[in-house]
Amino acid sequence: MSKGEIVMGALAPHPPHLVYADNPPQNEATSEGGWEELRWGYERLRESLSDKDYDVIIVHTPHWATFIGTHFLGIDSFKSLSVDPIFPNLFRYNYDLKVDVELSKAIHDNAADSGLLVKMMENPDFRIDYGTITSCHLVNPEWNKPIVCISSNRSKFYFNSEVMQANMIKLGEATRKAVEASGKKALLLSSNSLSHRHFTVEPEVPEDMSKEHVTNHNQYLWDMKMINLMRDGKTKEMIDLMPDFTEQTVAETEAGSLTWLMSALNFPNYKATVHAYGTVIGTGNAIVGWDPRKAKI
């Protein structure tokens, strides 16, 4: 068996607004559009994947928050309706997805070996979180690849960002080793926004783009700081700044997804491709790809 590899890592945020704006048949809510910059960014990310052959999507998700270790989906298919608890008016999505349980279990076992507390989720009635669904839909609307879905352990709440990062670095390494040993080609998704202070009101027409902007200038500056480090290939520096960034912008990076991704990619020192930056109800969202082939050039 040839060695498996990560063919691409992506920061793939999950505002349900982007699915809503796209009007796919799976979503019950319909819209007049909106957030084009981000949706076109996803289009560019999909294009960048078009020449990649991959077997599985591995997603780390803030919206499956666990406090007792890190959990992994352990059943091979799920079909149900996902309704966003915050934006139920926008996102009521009928999903039907497959799970690569073998790889899921392999990452689980590797993580356990590295000292992390882990658990397989084996209840068939479990409902998949809307973050996972949104990111996976926007990257692969055909849903023709199985996924591995990893919960976000919220050690930041119980300890601090440093503990969270240390755990996510271990989880990233465990993920990389499991992919390599599996012989599979994997796409990794960090399903999170950057700055994350929302507006607390919604416009009458949610897709009214005259109302959309970043919540405050501080958030914008921090987002740009992080994105420029990605563009410059300085991901270790970005990880060092992560606790301050998260604190200052109540960033969704608190869930650890981006730290996990950087670790799984072995902290890229090559340039990331920023496909888009835009705001959704005030939060900062970047769609960014890391292509490990660039490391080899």
Binding site: W64, A65, T66, F67, I68, P85, I86, F87, N123, D125, F126, R127, D129, S151, H198, F199, T200, V201, E202
Partner: peptide, 21 residues
């Protein structure tokens, strides 16, 4: 909730629920 305060008003909500933790 984030957008102010939400009040459940679906007349007969029905589901098979699983706790995420």
């Amino acid at each position: 909730s984030i957008l102010g305060h939400q009040v459940q008003a679906y007349p007969e909500p029905e589901w098979t629920f699983v706790d995420e933790e």
